[in-house]
């Protein structure tokens, strides 16, 4: 297994949010997590990425054989974990291109690798942003400042494409996108599917899964996975709503 989450319990602000979550992801798999608002989806993504402010009160998370929870956030990133955030953050004055360069170089350093030269880096950014229909002007603007919701999500996918993680956690990357943008973003994600890369897609709607076929679908409710299945589970959710399924489970 690449990622192994066992009986994970976590608090935010003294409130128990994750209450015994178990999930395993093997290389190359695409898992979708669906669940009602407030069920703990973002909390799970934050705990995996190492965001300060959460307290893990039980359980383990193993990442490529290492104890993930003991690693600082930046080391998790360098070890191949990427989080596309539900609410991407604005950084005034720092251009996306400089931000990405800093990230690529910092990860290389943490891994003890050589930093890629500027020409190679810029070529890669150009290739990837073109796949996502992003203009050069856009990557020269300060990170997410004045971006629409859809542009912010696209910027997250661009960063993922450049950083080439082993596990991409996508937290509601589809929300806020119109149908055309959704297709572009889904295309970008599909292009990154690879035997050694896994995805954990958090979504509220079945819509995204029409474009990115998951191997597994899990339903999260009240901090636990209440039921799991294949793509057909997502369709059932769409038809019946969370209430029915969550209750049955």
């Amino acid at each position: 297994m690449m990622l192994d989450i066992r009986d994970l319990h976590a608090n935010a602000g003294n409130k128990a949010i994750l209450k015994g979550l178990t999930l395993s992801i093997a290389p190359g798999q695409v898992h979708a997590i669906m669940g009602p608002n407030g069920s703990g989806k973002s909390t799970l993504s934050h705990v995996l990425a190492g965001k300060p402010g959460y307290e893990v009160t039980g359980g383990t998370v193993t990442w490529q054989g290492r104890d993930l929870l003991s690693m600082p956030a930046e080391e998790r990133a360098a070890a191949g974990i990427f989080l596309a955030m539900q609410y991407p953050v604005e950084i005034p004055g720092v251009t996306t291109i400089n931000f990405l360069r800093a990230a690529v170089n910092a990860q290389a350093r943490l891994r003890g690798e050589k930093e890629p030269d500027a020409v190679t880096f810029l070529r890669r950014v150009k290739e990837e942003r073109e796949k996502l229909n992003m203009s050069d002007e856009m990557v020269k603007r300060p990170v997410n400042v004045g971006f629409s919701g859809g542009e912010k999500k696209r910027n997250e996918v661009l960063q993922m494409a450049i950083l080439k993680p082993a596990l991409a956690i996508l937290d509601e990357t589809d929300s806020g996108l119109d149908i055309d943008a959704l297709k572009v973003v889904a295309g970008g994600i599909n292009a990154l599917r690879a035997p050694d890369r896994s995805f954990l897609m958090i979504t509220h709607y079945q819509r995204l899964l029409d474009y990115i076929a998951p191997d597994f679908v899990h339903v999260l409710a009240a901090g636990r996975i209440v039921t799991s299945g294949g793509p057909e589970l997502a369709r059932r959710l769409e038809a019946e709503g969370y209430d029915g399924i969550v209750k049955v489970a």
């Binding site: 990425a49 190492g50 965001k51 300060p52 402010g53 600082p72 956030a73 930046e74 998790r76 990133a77 360098a78 990427f82 989080l83 955030m85 991407p88 953050v89 604005e90 950084i91 005034p92 004055g93 720092v94 400089n98 931000f99 800093a102 990230a103 910092a106 990860q107 943490l110 300060p142 960063q159 950083l163």
Partner: peptide
């Protein structure tokens, strides 16, 4: 903000470097 700092950390940029980056952005003009 903590969110800005975490955004950088989650991309692999260590805290001190993140502060430098954010401050340089603040000073860009």
């Amino acid at each position: 903000s903590d969110d800005q700092l975490f955004y950088c950390l989650s991309r692999g940029i260590p805290a001190e470097e993140a502060v430098t980056l954010i401050v340089n952005g603040f000073c860009r003009e």
